[in-house]
């Protein structure tokens, strides 16, 4: 009998949780950005470590806004073009390093995120093409670019 008040309180809380207006709150991120991290490859793949580049510059070619401007970074997030099935990014890792160009080809999928957040464009990566000026190799970890904040590609460097 002594637990009855607790049980009733839990039931009431559960009922209120069940009655929550889901259209009022956006509990998941709407950003479906492509995540990228940098890895330093020594000993020909036997020793791979995360690395920080001191002055990273990143922006989409054809877009005036700069995503990252000469900042130290070990990772970056890139919003893919929601109007086209391909987009290109300029990536310079250091002020003295030769810049690289990353080209992404993908399929766009408009998706319902949640009643509170509405719709967002998710992407399914098809191909990633890069120049190899500073970049040694590239690895696709996850082709589905949605609101899960994953690291979709890893860039490997040897220096």
């Amino acid at each position: 009998m002594k637990y009855i008040s607790g049980i009733i309180a839990i039931l009431l809380l559960s009922v209120f949780a069940a009655c929550e207006d889901e259209t009022k709150t956006c509990d998941s991120t709407l950003l479906s950005d492509l995540g990228m991290n940098f890895k330093k490859d020594t000993l020909q793949g036997f020793l791979v470590k995360d690395t920080i580049w001191p002055k990273v510059t990143l922006y989409a070619i054809g877009n005036d806004s700069v995503l990252i401007n000469r900042q130290p970074r070990s990772s970056a997030f890139m919003p893919l073009d929601p109007l086209h099935d391909t987009c290109r990014f300029y990536l310079q890792l250091d002020s003295i390093a030769i810049p690289d160009t990353l080209t992404f080809r993908y399929k766009r999928v408009p998706s319902f995120v949640s009643p509170g957040c509405g719709f967002a464009t998710f992407f399914s990566l098809d191909t990633v093409i890069t120049t190899y000026n500073t970049i040694d190799s590239i690895h696709i970890n996850n082709r589905e670019v949605n609101s899960s904040n994953d690291t979709h590609i890893s860039l490997y460097f040897i220096y």
């Binding site: 989409a60 995503l67 919003p79 073009d81 929601p82 408009p110 719709f119 967002a120 464009t121």
Partner: peptide, 9 residues
Amino acid sequence: YLIKDGYWG
């Protein structure tokens, strides 16, 4: 529906 993208404007 309307999807807004801040970076691409």
